[in-house]
Design a protein around this nucleic acid. Structure first.
Lengths: 155, 155
DNA sequence: TGTATAAAATTCAAGCTTAAAATGTTTAAG
DNA sequence: CTTAAACATTTTAAGCTTGAATTTTATACA
């Protein structure tokens, strides 16, 4: 409301602190997850994310939808899917009536693989977030809801 | 209280939700910052992070310390510094008494450049985190303190 | 002294990420 | 029917990131 934006602004500084902490925690957790996916499942975080999105979508997704849902570039998805196809975890299926688009699906093996990873993933998160009570988790979750985010999807 | 730990565990699910939200918000904010650093300062987030660390360390840092402080691999830092040196923002200075190590410093131009970016950076964060009051920012910050993180540094 | 070990940094291969350009396909307008 | 615009995807170039291997220098110790 007042003439903000200059030099010492407590609110601004506090928000900056919050951001730096979020960044630190997020990177730490991502690093842990990456490490475990690598050593225990010979996989990566991006692959896990893609598989999670596909697992949730019973009928698979178009490349289009996938990149929108994950909020990453379309070219990015192309590469990750390429590798998942090599692994035999995913298949590209032609869409009849539109030869531009492709539908991408987990294979049976892919679904099986993902289930194994997902169970552990939840355990890892649960352990990493030990020290956060259910109430706090809920509370922070609600607050985060106000924070910048594209205005769509349930998450 | 109850028999937790199997299948449907409210606490575990709530923590997972929290994690997914943090991830979403963090990625969104990073994406915004990246975009603005790119278009308005012809720079990147990793470069900004490195410059911030160097700016805070009056006498510069060894590659070593830099990678520890930023929690990224040493090879990673090498590449970013290479590019910052090309830009003329950073210089490598020999350490007398140890020809293995190098001290890395912002140049005068580099310090100047960074100041400009930092002012805007704080503004951007402040705008992105509009909707979070000073009290909430402080509160979440405290809660995040309990979350996984290497046990060092002020942040 | 000589040599093994540790330390600091770089290099390397592989993969992730983006923005922008290119390719191929569909749809709509005239 | 033809052509312009819109769409879905892939390709490309540049940069980020990691873990592992390599190079160079310092230290310890026999």
């Amino acid at each position: 409301m007042t003439a903000e934006g200059l030099g010492k602004n407590g609110l601004s500084k506090e928000r900056l602190r919050l951001w730096l902490r979020m960044l630190r925690v997020t990177r730490q957790v991502e690093s842990e997850l990456r490490e475990r996916l690598r050593t225990e499942h010979d996989s990566t975080l991006p692959r896990f994310d893609v598989m999670a999105a596909l697992y949730a979508a019973e009928e698979g997704l178009k490349m289009n939808e996938l990149s929108k849902r994950l909020r990453v570039s379309n070219g990015n998805v192309t590469g990750i899917i390429d590798r998942l196809v090599e692994d035999g975890a995913v298949e590209r299926i032609a869409i009849e009536g539109d030869r531009r688009a492709t539908r991408v699906c987990l294979t049976v093996a892919g679904r099986e693989t993902f289930r194994g990873m997902a169970v552990e993933h939840e355990r890892w998160i649960n352990a990493l977030f030990e020290g956060v009570s259910e109430e706090d988790a809920h509370h922070i979750g609600e607050l985060l809801h106000r924070l910048p985010a594209s205005p769509n999807d349930a998450n």
